[in-house]
Each structure stands twice: as structure tokens, then as C-alpha cells.
């Protein structure tokens, strides 16, 4: 099958690639662009480990085709920190011991950042339901929820 030329923006960098029409955005990110921060945990949109944003909309990149990124702005975990400065969510995840193995962490950070951009002051229940599409098998979510709530509080103070 002949490949399709795609022009897109990834973490603010304009990017071009050729992809098989069947290839997912996740495969393109990982296998072609060496952006391996997004993980494949299921390939069926159930685990959220591949979460990225496309034009600020939270998506599972395993459910988006590479060709769909044409003309869009994609943001991945690699683009969360600004240079050496970590995003408050990233700092709070380390401080609160909110990761164990860390494989779900990139997706959860992207999802949590997307939540706080829409709702800077979420309740615990709102955080839990927003992150219900991001599976973590290690932590029981306790410390993740605390880290997100604490980051939200810090960001509100700074705002």
C-alpha cells in the first residue's frame, strides 16, 4: 500500500512523515519519530498509556491514524516540561511517589494536564473520573490522585 505524506506539528515542531494508511499515530510517534514516551499498553483505547493531545483534545494515539494528524497540533509527554523546568504535575508525581513502574505515567500526566487546563480546581471525584481511562496497576491510584490535587492547588496559587 502506498504511503501518505503528512505535515503536522509535534510539541511545537513542524514535522513531516510518510505513513501507511493503516499505521496508528502511536506507531508513527514511536517507530518513525523516536518519540517513545507514549506507550502501547493495549492498542484498543482501554488503558490510556498512549495518551496525547490533538489540537488540545485528549486522545488515545492508538485509536488515531497517523494520517489524521495532518494539519493538527500534537502534544506528547516529551513536550510537557519547558526545557529543564518540570511542569508542576511532573514535580508532584515524583514528590508524592505517584509512580512505581512508571509506564502509565506519561499517559496519566498528559490526561491530568488536560484536566487542569479545563478545570483548575477539580474535586477528588472529578479527578478520579477524568483519569478513569488511564490504567495504573501498581499504585492503587491513591498517590496519583494526591499528586494531581496538589499540583492543581500549586498551579492555582501561582495563577
Amino acid at each position: 500500500m502506498s504511503k501518505v505524506h503528512v505535515t503536522t506539528s509535534i510539541n511545537g515542531d513542524s514535522t513531516e512523515y510518510l505513513c501507511d494508511p493503516r499505521e496508528t499515530l502511536l506507531d508513527v510517534l514511536r517507530d518513525q519519530l523516536n518519540l517513545t514516551g507514549a506507550k502501547e499498553g493495549c492498542g484498543t483505547g482501554d488503558c490510556g498509556a498512549c495518551s496525547v493531545t490533538m489540537d488540545d483534545r485528549l486522545v488515545c494515539s492508538c485509536l488515531v491514524l497517523g494520517v489524521e494528524a495532518e494539519g493538527k497540533e500534537i502534544k506528547t509527554v516529551e513536550g510537557i516540561a519547558e526545557g529543564e523546568t518540570l511542569h508542576p504535575l511532573q514535580r508532584k508525581f515524583i514528590e508524592h511517589a505517584a509512580l512505581q513502574c512508571g509506564v502509565c505515567t506519561p499517559g496519566i500526566l498528559i490526561a491530568a494536564k488536560s484536566l487542569l487546563e479545563k478545570n483548575p480546581d477539580p474535586t477528588e471525584t472529578e479527578v478520579r473520573y477524568w483519569l478513569a481511562g488511564n490504567l495504573c496497576r501498581c499504585t492503587g491510584y491513591d498517590k496519583i490522585i494526591r499528586a494531581v490535587m496538589d499540583a492543581a492547588a500549586e498551579m492555582r496559587e501561582a495563577a
Binding site: 514516551g37 506507550k39 508525581f93 509512580l99 509506564v103 505515567t105 500526566l109
Partner: peptide, 11 residues
Amino acid sequence: KVTGKARFGAD
């Protein structure tokens, strides 16, 4: 692990 740099099995 919070910046996506950690390399897992498929990375």
C-alpha cells in the same frame, strides 16, 4: 519517568 525518557522493553 515523568519526561518520557525512560526506556522500557519496546522503546
